[in-house]
Design a protein around this nucleic acid. Structure first.
Length: 595
RNA sequence: GCGCCCGUAGCUCAGUUGGACAGAGCAACGGCCUUCUAAGCCGUGGGUCGCAGGUUCAAGUCCUGCCGGGCGUGCCA
């Protein structure tokens, strides 16, 4: 419809140019058509007269009049008017709107989908939490956001590759393995001071118990030997800068080295793998139950194992983008837009997480995705320039990488902020959240706000079965349509007795027209939500659609004796249900037939 | 200090690549169930769009400078 109106305007401009009433350049400057914000202004508005006023050297209203006079007639357009400073407003013929209903019913689940992406491949990497513990509610937001973005992009025609980057190497995993082993030693009866920097969650005990079940006391060592001659751990009762306060990092690193030494490579590896696998299985299962499924779980360790990290480093070296200083190898990130240079290989010979991440992103480009979307927690925002810098240095088109940052979710219960901290073990897991509020509410709430906005997640609201709860509000609209259908069947008023789509002209009530207009916007909403990577536009829209339906429901009876009117109204609410269902489907939220 | 994000109604937030009088939900107040689920609907009140300049026919939206809040700023991941 938009396109149709634009064509009419183009024709009018061409006509005026041909008559010499407008300079030739004017024809090329047609601004996009807008939906009228106020129904009183009609359905669509063009600002063409406003934007051409300078070029044409005419006041906008006068220009608008000329354009309107040159506008070809169209059966779809009921009225064209000029308003305000020079807006050209279009009011559509009712039949143009009624056609939307037929469209929706014909396309069913396909309605709102399109081929904008033309099958281009796009990778979406999201969550990618370290497998050092269960997912918490912060990861949940990234999961819901990434999943919905991926589904939206699929809906508009992209071929989407969902990926989880598994940090299955590195120091944090060593800390986990060591934490598991220490808990195992405690289960064996050893008494020991658990390191302040270790993982203290209950799940570590569970993994340790699994280790003990499998291996008995075979991995046991004497606690005195384990802790002999280690750097002192940090003391909570002293400030960190006090020399006597100890060093929790040095302490835990000492413990890791001790674990590797006492267990030997093989046994250490086994402990490490056990922890990794149990936690990764848990994460996988958790996300699957949340409706989040990946095509690839990409192993960080595999990058190092096949030499990809060493390779990107030598490529950077060969192209002169590195230097050595203080025993470390540095990347000249500041030559590529980053604020300072970054270390690739530490003075102890270990590669940094950054180096591995370069290899990972280089690999993404080498796999040939047309676009790459990273969804990160907002605390990683400082990391974006250095990754882009490295990609540029490697000769990759870094502009194809878009990093979207998701701000934290803050939970509230009973008006009080719920405290979270992974390391201390006092956190709310995604699984607990799902158990408490359910998958539907969690998914909906997570994407309800702009991703760059902090999310206040009100647990009480998400749980409440009341009109305050937007999830229920939308789902209830869907259920109500189904309920009406059940009533229709009970009364013997079945759709097949109706006369098809020939009575839509009977839909003339204000609530009906408002509802139809909202339905007509759905496809545009999906496109802007997908291309703008803004799922909240969809939740916003669905609330509006549900609102229009509820108003209609309260104002008019659907099951009326007038067969033609009944038929028309039935078609309208069926179309409404279809759009609600399609939208909820994209959000990963169920569309119940009864509540 | 520097970088990024955010400041819109009492609260939580929208605001369509600048557009016509700034919107929604909640909260407050007043109505609506012998009729398809009241998990709903209708109505009323409530805002110097953080502040000050600038660009523009047009600024909540773009630019600059302040003020306030969050995050980041490691040879951590």
């Amino acid at each position: 419809m938009k396109q149709h109106l634009q064509t009419l305007l183009e024709t009018a401009l061409a006509h005026l140019v041909a008559n010499g009433e407008l300079p030739a350049a004017a024809a090329a400057q047609l601004p996009p058509l807008e939906r009228a914000r106020d129904p009183q202004h009609g359905d669509f508005a063009s600002t063409v007269a406003l934007s051409l006023t300078k070029l044409a050297r005419q006041p906008p209203r006068q220009l608008a009049e000329r354009i309107v006079a040159a506008l070809p007639a169209s059966p779809q357009v009921a009225e064209v008017s000029i308003a305000g400073p020079g807006f050209i407003n279009f009011r559509l013929a009712p039949s143009a709107y009624h056609a939307v209903i037929a469209d929706i019913l014909a396309q069913g689940p396909q309605f709102g989908r399109c081929d904008l992406g033309a099958g281009q491949t796009i990778q979406v990497e999201f969550v990618s939490a370290n497998p050092t513990g269960p997912l918490h509610v912060g990861h949940g937001r990234g999961g819901a956001y990434g999943a919905v973005v991926a589904d939206l992009l699929t809906a508009v025609g992209y071929t989407v590759h969902r990926e989880y980057y598994v940090n299955d190497a590195g120091r944090q995993m060593d800390i986990l393995a060591t934490s598991v082993w220490l808990r195992y030693l405690e289960l064996c009866g050893e008494l020991l001071p658990f390191p302040s920097n270790g993982y203290k969650g209950d799940y570590v005990w569970d993994i340790a118990a699994a280790l003990h079940r499998e291996q008995g006391d075979a991995y046991r060592a004497d606690a005195d030997v384990v802790f002999a001659d280690l750097p002192a751990d940090a003391r909570a009762d002293l400030p960190a800068d006090d020399p006597a306060a100890g060093d929790k990092e040095a302490h835990i690193d000492g413990l890791i080295a001790r674990a590797k030494h006492l267990l030997g490579d093989h046994h250490y590896r086994l402990v490490f793998e056990l922890g990794l696998n149990i936690i990764l299985d848990d994460i996988r299962d958790d996300l699957a139950q949340f409706g989040v499924v990946y095509a690839t779980w990409y192993s960080e360790r595999s990058l190092a194992e096949r030499g990809a990290v060493a390779q990107v480093i030598s490529r950077l070296q060969a192209s002169g983008h590195t230097y050595t200083q203080d025993g470390a190898l540095w990347f000249r990130a500041s030559n590529f837009g980053d604020e300072k240079d970054r270390v690739l290989i530490r003075d102890n010979g270990q590669t940094t997480y950054f180096a591995t991440d370069i290899a990972y992103h280089a690999d993404k480009f080498e796999r040939g995705f047309a676009r790459i979307l990273d969804i990160w927690g907002a605390d990683h925002h400082g990391y974006v320039p250095r990754i882009k810098a490295a990609l540029l240095a490697l000769g990759h088109p870094a502009e194809r990488l878009d990093v979207h940052l998701v701000q934290f979710a803050i939970l509230y219960r009973g008006g009080e902020r719920v405290q979270m901290s992974t390391r201390s073990g006092e956190f709310v897991t995604l699984r607990e959240l799902r158990r408490e509020v359910g998958r539907d509410a969690a998914r909906f709430f997570y994407v309800m706000r702009k991703s760059e906005q902090h999310l206040d997640f009100d647990l009480d609201l998400a749980k409440s079965q009341s009109n305050d709860n937007p999830v229920y509000y939308v789902q209830y609209a869907h259920a109500r349509v189904s309920s009406v259908l059940r009533q229709a069947v009970e009364r013997g008023l079945m759709p097949e007795t109706s006369a098809g789509l020939t009575h839509l002209e009977r839909l003339t009530e204000p609530q009906e027209l408002a509802l139809i207009k909202t339905l007509a916007r759905y496809a545009e909403i999906v496109v802007s939500a997908a291309t703008g990577v803004q799922p909240h536009l969809l939740t916003q829209y669905l609330r509006e659609l549900a609102g229009d339906f509820h108003s209609y429901y309260n104002a008019h009876q659907f099951l009326v004796p007038d067969a033609a009117l009944f038929d028309a109204r039935l078609k309208l609410i069926l179309a409404t249900r279809q759009v609600l269902r399609n939208g909820l489907e994209l959000l990963g939220v169920s569309a119940p037939d009864a509540m």
